[in-house]
């Protein structure tokens, strides 16, 4: 019985590792893109232009207020009707980036707002331009507030990437579905899926926790 289980496990593991690789690729690319976009949006969100700030706020609310599975359907099935036909993989990356950048935008904006206004004034008074104020004075301080929840967002995104299986990206969850219809050991299959997600998420969770602890200690020291 156990031998049978083990041999089955060895049989299916290569597929799962391939699925895991795809999950890492989809999440990894989306992570980089959504971080870049999220920071840009977050900075503009706190900027002086009301119109820009409100537009971004609306975007964020829409992204946060709709299920990810609906977003990905829109990207994959509806955008082609408007002329933007994407393969499953780019569609998945676009959808994940669009959603996660909205969350990161709020994290970044929150971090920037948490820096006292006097810091902007001191930097401005010394002759630094807006970009230098942000880069040299505000963001380094905001990063303390931003980093722990930012890493937390990465964890959420990796887990949400399981949803892209619905449009046919053969990542970890889809590999699970494909396998479970062929072999009887359903529990084993989805336990394995869960364990593999956990393997990539757990270090990030630990990182987020330790960042939180370290940065709060540092702020006591400073």
């Amino acid at each position: 019985m156990i031998a049978e289980y083990a041999s089955r496990l060895i049989q299916i593991i290569p597929f799962f590792l391939k699925g895991l690789l795809m999950t890492v690729v989809v999440s990894g690319i989306s992570l980089v893109l959504s971080t870049a976009l999220g920071f840009i949006l977050g900075i503009l969100r706190t900027g002086r232009s009301r119109l820009v700030s409100r537009s971004i706020g609306l975007y964020v609310d829409v992204m946060r207020g709709t299920p990810f599975v609906v977003q990905i359907f829109i990207v994959f099935f509806i955008l082609p009707e408007w002329g933007l036909q994407l393969d499953a993989l780019p569609a998945a990356i676009l959808a994940l980036t669009a959603m996660t950048s909205a969350f990161i935008c709020e994290v970044v904006a929150g971090g920037i707002r948490a820096v006292p206004k006097g810091q902007w004034e001191a930097a401005a008074a010394s002759g630094l331009n807006k970009f230098q104020q942000l880069k040299l004075v505000i963001l380094p301080q905001a990063m303390r507030t931003i980093l722990p929840p930012l890493v937390g967002q990465y964890v959420l995104m990796i887990k949400d990437s399981s949803v892209v299986s619905v449009i046919g990206v053969t990542e970890l969850t889809r590999v699970g579905w494909q396998t479970v219809v062929r072999i009887p050991e359903g529990l084993m299959v989805f336990t394995l899926v869960g364990v593999l997600y956990f393997v990539i998420c757990y270090p990030l969770i630990r990182l987020s926790n330790s960042l939180e602890q370290r940065l709060s200690q540092e702020s006591v020291r400073l």
């Binding site: 006097g118 810091q119 004034e121 001191a122 930097a123 008074a125 002759g127 004075v137 400073l222």
Partner: peptide, 19 residues
Amino acid sequence: TKLRADIGFVFQQFHLYPH
């Protein structure tokens, strides 16, 4: 920025950069 570079400003609450 050019104007401000030539004027020193000292705040009540110091506003040093803590980092």
